[in-house]
């Protein structure tokens, strides 16, 4: 199936002369949840802004479901809902009025039943007549989501939707996102909580210093870069690693010599654990305890960005 959003050769240099995006090429697949990760100032918000129309590109094109987002901006924008990163809301409007306003702005006829549903889904129903300025930060964030959903978009951009939202409500929010996805809505989100991306995303893109440095299926990414570590606490300290142990290249000994770490690929056909343990037994090395840990998306991400910062990766 064709990508629902196609970004080609996109660059953005701000009036200050700062190049925030450099030749971005990216396709977003229909119906997926795409997580855009990257450190502060990487260009995530700028990229979202260009697609949604709040930032003008310096070069390149964006098409949304086949519509160029500049020459055919009406058709393109009708499909998109945007939840901005900053908490920008009116102050004196009621929740109901501001959400209805958004729907009108996108040219949709009134539909109170639909707005009622959104507000209920986002646990805002009891606040519908409150002035926005009387709401807490997390509630305002949800008002912004309600506004973005008010015109039944096919594509939803969530720029750090969970910043400042408590754990309970964050769960509710992700449930709303899952439901949307199940209804066929394509979702592009940014977050600094990497567990969220790990939980939610189908694909992950990493942006750093205005360049996309990686786009990968989440599963593939976890598989490729995901490694597991088996840690063995030894009963007696070792001075050095015996050279004749199995898989010695994957082994490392802690400084004080009481911990052995075996790093292995989770997806490999044979992890070598059985043979390692047999070989330890033969060598008379005994252990008190053992544990395994898997590298999280966070570690993968930090590794990537770090590499990029040091001019390592492409």
């Amino acid at each position: 199936m064709h990508d629902i959003i196609t970004i080609s050769g996109l660059s953005k240099t701000y009036a200050t002369g700062f190049p925030a995006l450099k030749n971005i090429n990216l396709g977003i697949r229909r119906g997926e949840i795409f997580a855009l990760l990257g450190p502060n100032g990487a260009g995530k918000t700028t990229l979202i802004g260009v697609v949604c129309g709040t930032v003008t590109a310096s070069a390149g094109t964006v098409t949304v479901d086949g519509h160029d987002n500049v020459t055919d901006f009406r058709a393109a924008r009708e499909l998109i809902g945007l939840v901005p990163q900053e908490l920008t809301t009116d102050a004196f409007e009621s929740v109901w009025a501001t959400v209805s306003f958004s729907r009108g702005l996108f040219g949709k006829p009134k539909n109170p039943a639909y707005i009622e549903k959104i507000l209920k889904d986002l646990s805002l129903w009891d606040k519908k007549d409150n002035k926005i300025m009387t709401l807490s930060g997390g509630m305002k964030r949800r008002v912004l989501i309600a506004k973005a959903l008010s015109h039944e978009p096919k594509i939803l951009f969530l720029d750090e939707p969970t910043a400042g939202v408590d754990v309970e409500l964050r769960k509710d929010m992700w449930q709303v996102v899952r439901d949307l996805r199940a209804a066929g809505v394509t979702i592009i989100l940014t977050t600094h909580y990497i567990e969220e991306a790990e939980d939610m995303a189908d694909r992950i893109g990493v942006i750093s210093k205005g360049e996309i440095i990686l786009v990968e299926e989440k599963k593939e990414l976890m598989r490729k870069l995901g490694q597991k570590r088996l840690t063995l606490q030894l009963q007696e300290k070792l001075a050095a690693l015996p050279a004749n142990l199995f898989g010695v290249s994957q082994l490392s000994l802690s400084k004080d010599g009481d911990e052995l770490t075996y790093t292995y690929d989770t997806q490999a056909e044979r992890t070598g654990i059985t043979r390692l343990l047999a070989s330890l037994n033969e060598a008379g090395i005994r252990f008190r305890d053992l544990s395994t840990t898997q590298s999280s998306l966070e570690e993968i991400f930090v590794g990537l960005v770090h590499q990029d910062r040091n001019g390592g990766a492409k």
């Binding site: 949604c52 129309g53 709040t54 901006f73 009406r74 058709a75 393109a76 924008r77 009708e78 998109i80 945007l82 901005p84 900053e86 920008t88 809301t89 009116d90 102050a91 958004s102 702005l105 996108f106 040219g107 506004k147």
Partner: peptide, 14 residues
């Protein structure tokens, strides 16, 4: 001033 202009800019309006 408040930033709510993002909505006008991202809506299908000229």
């Amino acid at each position: 001033f408040t930033g709510t202009i993002y909505e006008l800019l991202s809506a299908p309006i000229s």
